[in-house]
């Protein structure tokens, strides 16, 4: 198993989701968003979460990040309880940094200052040291020339790359990505994928990545976890035993196609259910 191999080589960042249930209660109408969901993610694993829109994937991410509480069950990070029934809301910390769907760089800070923000507010580095480290990391990601520009001055691809650098500078155990490349065209997307993989190969941080895009899931992931439509549960897990480093030539290979098909069958079934249940959006 790829995950078992990995836990021997990687350091920290194992997430354990155990029997997690989330019930939303708007106006007294209980909505079961996540139902008894369990998933073990190894340290340093790239875990892709795939499922129809509104299925509750983001609810899981929010529970790990500490934005939303859970109702039952528990989530652990490296064996330590983040949240459980007694303490349903996890504390928010820089060990689990989130990259958002629509981009959340601070428009009033240059890319360099955006990246320097984490170490500065945590007080781990002085202002000058944080700026220096930020410039260095941006340069590593090929963004050295635009470090002094504001997010409004650069392309969305550059902004998104800078946002991932802003997350990584905190040296997190887990990177939580919520459909970060959703609105991008296929060409930009493939460039973003290679950049992300390149950063992953350098850091080996655990990645929890929510997506609709099956090719993205197989290309990037060690595993693609297909979720059921609401309530959210694990439906199937597609293991991607394709060696790293990977590049875009993989996209046209036979083994890649087979895995995408395998995931597609599972997702299609759920998408159909979601459609029949009257969901507005589909995978």
């Amino acid at each position: 198993m790829s995950t078992a191999e990995m836990s021997t080589t990687a350091r920290t960042g194992a997430i354990s989701i155990r029997n997690v249930t989330k019930i939303y209660d708007p106006e007294g109408v209980n909505v079961l968003a996540v139902d008894d969901c369990s998933l073990e993610i190894g340290a340093g694993e790239v875990c892709m979460i795939v499922g129809p829109s509104g299925c509750g994937k983001t609810t899981l991410l929010n529970a790990i990040a500490g934005f939303h509480s859970l109702t039952f069950g528990e989530i652990r990070l490296d064996g330590e309880v983040l949240c459980d029934e007694r303490r349903p809301l996890a504390s928010q910390g820089a060990d689990r940094v989130v990259v958002f769907q629509n981009g959340a760089l601070f428009p009033w800070k240059t890319l360099g200052d955006n990246v320097a923000y984490g170490p500065m507010v945590q007080g781990t580095l002085s202002k000058a040291e944080a700026r220096e480290k930020a410039r260095h990391m941006l340069a590593e990601a090929g963004l050295g020339d635009v470090a002094e520009k504001y997010p409004g001055e650069v392309s969305s691809g550059m902004a998104r790359r800078a946002e991932i650098v802003r997350a990584l500078i905190n040296d997190p155990k887990v990177l939580l990505l919520d459909e970060p490349y959703r609105a991008m065209d296929a060409l930009t997307k493939s460039i973003m994928h290679e950049a992300l993989l390149e950063m992953y190969d350098r850091t080996k941080v655990t990645i929890f990545f929510i997506t609709h895009d099956l090719e993205e899931a197989i290309f990037l992931g060690d595993r693609a976890v297909v979720m059921t439509t609401r309530p959210c549960r694990v439906k199937t897990i597609v293991n991607v035993d394709i060696p790293r480093p990977r590049d875009y030539h993989l996209l046209s290979s036979e083994e890649f196609r087979v895995l995408v098909e395998e995931a597609k069958d599972a997702v299609h079934e759920e998408a159909l259910k979601a459609f029949e249940a009257g969901e507005r959006e589909l995978a």
């Binding site: 820089a94 629509n102 981009g103 923000y117 997350a167 905190n170």
Partner: peptide, 23 residues
Amino acid sequence: IDISLLRAAQSMGATQWDMFWKI
């Protein structure tokens, strides 16, 4: 203000004080 900006700051370890002045 986009709640993602506040959450991003929070997830990077910003305190309420930081978020008020910087976000």
